[in-house]
Computed example of a mutant assay.
Amino acid sequence: MTANVVSVVRPQELVESQLSAWRDFQGADERLANPFLAPEFTLAVGRARSNARVAVIESGGTLAGFFPYERGALGVGRAMGSGLADCQAVVHSPDLRPEAQDLTAGCGLAALEFDHLLAYQVPLVAYHVVTEASPIVDLAAGFERYIAGHASLDRQTRRSKRVAERELGPLSFELDVRDKAALRLLIEWKSAQYRRTGRFDRFAKRSIMQIVEEMMESQADGCTGTLSMLYAGGVPVAGHFGLRSKTVLCSWFPAFDARYSRYRPGLLLFRSLIESSASIGIGHIDLGKGQEPYKQELKNGDIAVAEGWVERPVPAALLRRVQRAPRRLLLDFVLSRPALYVRTMG
């Protein structure tokens, strides 16, 4: 067997032939079509985060794959877009079998952590700690087939639409809004939502703001920033910013004006988003892993994603294991008790 050779570069050091090969690898495997796996996302993260790196994998002297990641303290690496990206993977040619230990060593890492890794990538299965079902809206059979399977959702949205139009004015929806002011409005709504729910405001981090603003400008086939807005009587009431490839739309930042919450603007937005996405050939919408009620309401399928880590037999990896132990023990405790897991996950 030919050994794989790993070299490490900063994202901005990738040359056009490498970027082209990266896109070709994605195009050869529909499972890699997620826009978070596109080089454009990695390049944006690289411009915002100085610790971004890309492992370039060669096999038999031929370019064979890429793994974007971020290098942290103690030589611990995390898959690219940690805390931000909903999909992680080694993007590679069909013939490559990436070895987890060799990849980690080639990156010069003591440990490599992931939390949204595509679970089908066999060489990393041994390092999965948890595998979860990440909900999707499967549109392969078209919107009419999808909505026929969601009769309750259809009734709810029709009812909410009638009430909203009677009290607020006609509803309208735009799939792709090229307006920075609209993006700022959406971010204001999302930040307010984070505060209301006691969650950390991700937009308080300058690097995340920079990545989102850059993605808003991206028009690449494999990674197009897409801002969608719902209006009532000409007034914006809900919005969504995500990334899309030719066949996959990633739900990233949905939000609405809380003053209109009684009309369920988020649900109205997603119905329009789903219908419009189907009309332009999107095969599925990735809602991101999580048990939020709206995701369970919208979904009609799942993609398996994994959380775990690869460790090398070096002192820094042992120290990282000690740091990770309390969280790991808590996770094992919950997962070993099904009734507690159900209550915790809602």
Rank of each mutant, 00 (worst) to 15 (best):
D286H: 15
T226R: 10
V212F: 09
Q296T: 02
L168H: 07
V177T: 04
D257Q: 06
S277D: 05
Y263N: 11
A182F: 10
S218I: 06
V237T: 09
K190D: 01
L268T: 04
G239V: 03
R202M: 14
E292F: 01
R199L: 13
K295I: 01
R184A: 15
F203H: 03
S207A: 14
A204H: 05
F203C: 02
T247H: 08
F203L: 01
T247E: 04
E167D: 15
T226K: 07
S228M: 04
D179H: 09
F241E: 05
L230H: 02
Y231R: 14
P254M: 04
Y194N: 05
P254R: 04
K246H: 13
E217I: 00
G266K: 02
A238Q: 11
V237P: 08
W252M: 11
A204N: 07
R264I: 00
E217S: 11
S245G: 11
V212H: 06
P170S: 06
R166N: 15
W252G: 00
S272R: 13
E213W: 06
D201A: 04
A220F: 01
R259K: 10
V248D: 02
A220E: 14
S261M: 12
Y260W: 14
F256S: 10
I208M: 08
R206T: 12
M209Y: 07
R178I: 06
V248L: 05
Y194A: 10
